[in-house]
């Protein structure tokens, strides 16, 4: 069974439908890129998949024993976080929140898991550093480590390379591909970088207030949707 099955999803803000007719599946091991122009409903879809926004129609079904709170989410960074006084370790450890249940404090196991994920990101030596002193690329890797603390199965990322320089962008894409291939974590990413999506993803979902394309990268290269996004040439 698929990890996630969406049937005829639609979303509305204050009665105005911003996204309709979205149907797709996410299989375990997929690397799905959600592309589309600004305001095409990409971030809204991610919020819907996380249960932060109720769909106005259709359904999201989770399979393979995946629970909604076991999804690792990497949100777009807010201005508030950039100058937040927190150590790197505090931020990553907060990813274990969904495993706390009725406990009040993090266990040794939680701490080890947070350290393991920092190491995966090559950030362990920065553990005690202050989050706000890091570069944009490092901050993003800390947030990715936090998301990995929350999940073993599915990562949802909202524009993970927004605001990063070309080197940090390349590193971020390589890290994600590595996590996807080596650790078998399914990746669903919102991006407006179509070329990177074509290079790294296995499947593409193209939105423009409705579903314009869903399928493999090979099929997408031949599609009208891609031609239109690239400027109709």
């Amino acid at each position: 069974m698929a990890l996630m099955t969406c049937r005829d999803l639609s979303f509305a803000y204050g009665g105005e439908t911003v996204l309709r007719g979205v149907s797709f599946t996410v299989e375990a091991g997929d690397y799905l890129c959600v592309v589309g122009e600004n305001g095409s409903g990409k971030s809204t879809l991610i919020k819907g998949l996380l249960g932060l926004k109720e769909p106005s129609g259709g359904s999201v079904e989770l399979g393979d024993g995946l629970e909604r709170r076991e999804v690792g989410y990497l949100p777009q960074q807010t201005a508030l976080q950039r100058d937040f006084p927190a150590s790197v370790f505090e931020v990553v450890l907060s990813g274990r929140l969904n495993g706390l249940g009725r406990r009040c404090f993090y266990s040794q196991e939680d701490r080890r898991e947070a350290e393991r994920n920092l190491e995966r990101m090559g950030m362990l030596e920065l553990k005690r550093r202050c989050y706000q002193d890091l570069s944009g690329g490092q901050q993003q890797r800390v947030l990715l480590a936090r998301a990995l603390c929350a999940t073993k199965k599915l990562l949802l990322l909202d524009e993970p390379v927004a605001g990063l320089d070309p080197v940090a962008t390349g590193e971020m894409y390589n890290l994600l591909k590595l996590i996807n291939l080596c650790d078998g974590v399914t990746v669903v990413m919102v991006s407006h970088d179509v070329e990177a999506a074509l290079r790294y993803a296995t499947r593409i979902l193209h939105l423009g207030h409705e579903q314009l394309f869903f399928g493999s990268v090979a099929d997408y290269r031949r599609s009208d949707a891609l031609r239109r996004l690239r400027g109709g040439c």
Partner: peptide, 20 residues
């Protein structure tokens, strides 16, 4: 509730998404 207070203060969206 220290871990939860931190999570909600630092990143409300993430905290909500993971079931807080």
């Amino acid at each position: 509730f220290y871990p939860r207070i931190f999570a909600v203060t630092f990143d409300e969206t993430f905290a909500t998404a993971t079931g807080t």
